[in-house]
Design a protein around this nucleic acid. Structure first.
Length: 331
DNA sequence: CTATCTGTTCTGAC
DNA sequence: TGTCAGAACAGATA
């Protein structure tokens, strides 16, 4: 269940192996999930991959590059991928490699000795919704068991022809010049948790308009903060010793500061351990993350509190989602 | 076999 | 406008 750390882990993996490569062929195996025609991206190069909230963004161009950062490049196709609950992006150096390694017991694709499920080992499989074939014969599979995820394509020249040709790679580009902000799925996202815009003042201001909102639901609202989901919000609030049910109007400035710092701490840990593989998550190479082993409250219902306070981890439903907390530490 | 649970986001009712 | 239930979907588990 990919949240920011899981998507970030996949992004870093894919940056190493697909940037600069040409998409020679693209197979759309489920047009509900993959919402464009393969012909629209065949022949284009992957110029850059970034992450916005839980969404992966591929920038595509006819030219291979490298490009002058200040000049930008003339490609305008932007490919979005949201993994939602059960999506996976798995890269293979050549078709059948993962299956081959497992049969030979090389295990090169399986981290920490954890066995990989059969439906990850065999690629493609019944849940494969799309396949990229690159010019070096490597392959990228998009699997999604539940079909909540999506792949979409935008042409920024079509979205705003007045800005055609301006497409900076410079990370210092001003938000108003950020062409990705024109895209519907990206335009309303809140600040990234690691950005300088994610401040105590910002959170307190947003909270003013919705005073009775519970803090957990405030943090997981993507229009308020980008990328925090169910696992990391429970962890962050445990670190902050704040009950997930607290109304935002009752939080003090020092508590807001603690929330900000601990959201970052929880996400940092998630990235460090390669994500949390509670369900179907694997990284770009099919490896599971180990963040689950380091969780303090998430899915630890009934176990003793990690702070040794004598409490027992409890579980309630909040907004229809499992919510884990220590009833003694967290107030 | 049925009921319940999973966890992201959108839609529609109030 | 804010809040909340339900839906989208396909499985695992009790």
């Amino acid at each position: 269940m990919p949240e920011l750390p899981e998507v970030e882990t996949i992004k870093r993996g894919l940056q190493r192996v697909v940037v600069g490569k040409k998409i020679e062929k693209f197979e759309n195996k489920d047009s509900k999930v993959v919402q464009f025609d393969p012909k629209e991206i065949e022949g284009l190069h992957v110029v850059e991959i970034e992450r916005r909230a839980k969404i992966l963004v591929f920038k595509l161009s006819k030219e291979k590059g490298p490009f002058d950062s200040a000049q930008g490049f003339d490609g305008t196709k932007v490919f979005l991928c949201h993994l939602k609950m059960t999506g996976q992006l798995i890269w293979e150096e050549c078709m059948g490699e993962t299956e081959f390694c497992l049969k030979k017991k090389r295990g090169a694709k399986v981290a920490g000795g954890h066995p990989s499920p059969d439906w990850v080992a065999k690629l493609p499989n019944a849940y494969t919704r799309a396949i990229f074939h690159f010019d070096d014969r490597s392959v990228l599979f998009f699997n999604d068991l539940r079909r909540f995820g999506y792949m979409k394509l935008y042409d920024l020249d079509a979205v705003n022809p007045a800005k055609a040709g301006i497409y900076s790679l410079d990370p210092r580009v001003k938000p108003e010049d950020d062409r990705l902000r024109e895209i519907k799925e990206l335009k309303n996202l809140g600040p990234e948790p690691f950005s300088k815009d994610f401040t105590i003042e910002y959170m307190a201001n947003r909270a003013k308009r919705i005073p009775t909102r519970k803090i957990k639901q405030f943090i997981t609202d993507q229009e308020i903060i980008s990328g925090v989901g169910n696992i990391y919000v429970d962890e962050a609030l445990f670190y902050s010793k704040i009950m997930p049910t607290r109304a935002v109007k009752d939080l003090s400035p020092s508590e807001w500061g603690s929330i900000r710092d601990n959201i970052r701490k929880a996400l940092d840990l998630g990235i460090k351990y390669g994500g949390s593989s509670e369900d179907t998550y694997v990284d770009a190479f099919g490896n599971q993350g180990t963040m689950g082993e380091h969780a303090k409250v998430y899915r630890r219902t009934g176990k003793p509190c990690a702070n040794n306070c004598g409490g027992t981890v409890g579980r309630i439903a909040l907004g229809g989602r499992g919510t884990h907390f220590c009833p003694i530490c967290q107030q």
